[in-house]
Design a protein around this nucleic acid. Structure first.
Lengths: 100, 100
DNA sequence: AACATAGGCAAGCTACGACTTGCCTGTCAA
DNA sequence: TTGACAGGCAAGTCGTAGCTTGCCTATGTT
C-alpha cells in the first residue's frame, strides 16, 4: 500500500475519521472496540464496527495511524507526521516549519 | 455562507482544488480564465470553466480563497489562515504554533 | 449598435465513498 | 473443546461530489 500525499487529504475529508484522530489524541493505542464505544459515547456517532474498521484502514494507508498486534487486540496509534506535508506545501503565516 | 472547520478539510479533499491552491501560491490574484489556462498548461488538467468555478466556490466557502471584483474580472486571492485550525487540532512535532 | 470577453445559473449524468449486513477466522478463558 | 470476544472479508445499497452541457447576464471594445 503506497502512501501518496493525496491519501492524507482524503483521509482527513471524512468527519468520522477526524473524530477518530481526536479520540486517539485523547487516548493513544486504542483497540477497535475501544474506539467504537468511545466514539459512540463521546462523539454521538452510532456506527457499525466495520465502518470504523474501514475508516481505520484509510487512516493507516495515509500513515496517520499505525497498528500493533497485541494478542487478539489490534492497537491503534496516532502519527501526525504526515500532516507536515500540508504546511510544507502552502505557507502558513505564524507557523514555523513552513517553506517556499 | 458559514465557515465551518469541516469546510476546510472538504475543500482540501479534491486534487483539483489543491492544484488551484498551488497555482494561487505561485501567482496570486488570478482571474477565472487565467486559472483555467494555467491549470491546463502546467497541471495537465483539462476541465471546463464551470468545473473550476465550482471548485473556487468551495474554496471560498472554506475561507481559503477570497475574491475581488475588478471590472468584468473576478480576481482570486489565497488565504492560508484557515489551515492553522489543522495544527491547532492535532499536535505536530517540530511545528511551532500547535497546542493541546 | 454589435460583438467579444468574463462570468453566473440550473439541470443532469456518473462514479465513488460511506455504511450496512452476513458470514468467516483467530485468540483466550473456562 | 466449547464458547465468548476481537477482528477480517466480501457483496450490496445509497447519497452526493465532481463534471458537463446549455443558456443567460454584465462589462468592455470598436
Amino acid at each position: 500500500m503506497f502512501r501518496r500525499v493525496a491519501d492524507v487529504f482524503e483521509a482527513l475529508a471524512a468527519p468520522t475519521r477526524r473524530a477518530i484522530l481526536d479520540e486517539l489524541t485523547d487516548r493513544d493505542g486504542q483497540s477497535l472496540f475501544e474506539l467504537c464505544t468511545r466514539l459512540t459515547m463521546k462523539h454521538g456517532l452510532a456506527m457499525s464496527r466495520q465502518a470504523i474498521s474501514q475508516h481505520l484502514e484509510v487512516l493507516e494507508a495515509a500513515g496517520l495511524v499505525t497498528t500493533r498486534r497485541e494478542g487478539r487486540c489490534k492497537l491503534h496509534h496516532l502519527d501526525t507526521a504526515p500532516l507536515r506535508s500540508i504546511f510544507e506545501r502552502w505557507p502558513v503565516e505564524g507557523l514555523k516549519g513552513t517553506r517556499r
